[in-house]
């Protein structure tokens, strides 16, 4: 009787060589195209010393951009949370005609590029736009001001929360909620005591992704902001402005703040994934 050779023993030295070659190639490529571009931002921002860095960050226009970006993130987050939970609950817990179509529309912003979203908003609210003349007559300013930036950011970040929460709600089913209902719990009690604890990590994950996107959105916001210096420049727009002004160190200083936010997002993502696995 010939013993059956286990497959592992069949892997010759050549295989090991190929393996290390592929790993080496993967690591080298990733270093060049992902890691270096990331670290380069921090390096360039600090290349002329902390004093210059602080001076660039504390420049009035950059400070204002940081404030505006924070304001946009703070306004959009609660809307995204409420609508994301509502949409997930609606799609996961009820059947009604047009349910699939509604889900497609909710996820539509993911297949429309942000710059097109910006164009849509301009065609709606712009001077010759669909609602433009009526809004101008009522003296309501949406474009080239905070409302326009917030609305277009909501368009771009809208699907994030629902996309994380919905699959979880569908997978968990509604037995627990129905049990709570038969025990006499009110709708609000069911949500707070049963649904929310079940979805909290997915909700947090969606909120992190949506906020990261709100802070970093460039294309959509650049169309509706009007790029008024010191007024409607969010942080990503300010980076472009500084770059075009040939203030490269200033651009990198502004970019470094967004890079730090991105790194925090990555750490949070890893922590949440470890938590839910």
């Amino acid at each position: 009787m010939t013993p059956v050779t286990p497959p592992a023993a069949l892997a010759p030295r050549q295989d090991r060589k190929a393996q290390w070659l592929l790993i080496g190639l993967a690591v080298a490529l990733t270093l060049f195209i992902v890691v270096v571009p990331l670290l380069y931002i921090l390096w360039r921002a600090l290349s002329e010393g902390l004093a210059v860095f602080a001076q660039n960050i504390l420049a009035p226009d950059t400070l204002h951009a940081i404030w505006l970006t924070s304001a946009v993130a703070i306004v959009t987050l609660p809307v995204n949370l409420c609508v994301g939970i509502a949409a997930a609950w609606l799609i996961a817990r009820f059947t009604f005609p047009g349910r699939k179509a509604l889900l497609t529309i909710i996820e539509l912003p993911f297949s429309i590029s942000p710059i097109i979203a910006g164009v849509c908003y301009l065609l709606l609210y712009g001077r010759q736009g669909l609602l433009g003349p009526a809004l101008a007559a009522a003296d309501i300013k949406i474009l080239f001001a905070l409302p326009g930036i917030v609305l277009v950011t909501l368009f771009v970040t809208g699907p994030f929360v629902a996309r994380e929460v919905l699959p979880l709600m569908q997978a968990q089913g509604s037995e627990q909620e129905q049990a709570a209902l038969t025990l006499g719990a009110s709708g609000w009690q069911i949500f707070r005591r049963v649904t929310l604890p079940n979805i909290r990590w997915a909700l947090l994950y969606g909120a992190v992704l949506a906020t990261a996107r709100a802070v970093g959105e460039f294309g959509a916001v650049s169309v509706v902001s009007g790029a008024i210096r010191g007024q409607t420049m969010t942080l990503p727009l300010q980076i472009e402005l500084l770059f075009n002004d040939l203030n490269v160190v200033g651009a990198f200083a502004a970019a470094s703040t967004l890079t730090l936010i991105a790194l925090v997002v990555l750490v949070l993502k890893t922590l949440i994934e470890a938590r839910t696995r």
Binding site: V83, A86, W89, F94, I105, L130, L151, G158, E177, S186
Partner: peptide, 29 residues
């Protein structure tokens, strides 16, 4: 479930308002 679990009207209203103003109106434009 539609008859059992609460919140159909509220979540439908919120979702449609949001989708209408934020997504559909600009795309229609």
């Amino acid at each position: 479930q539609r008859r059992v679990l609460p919140g159909f009207g509220l979540t439908m209203g919120l979702t449609l308002t949001y989708v209408g103003i934020i997504v559909l109106l600009p795309v229609i434009a």
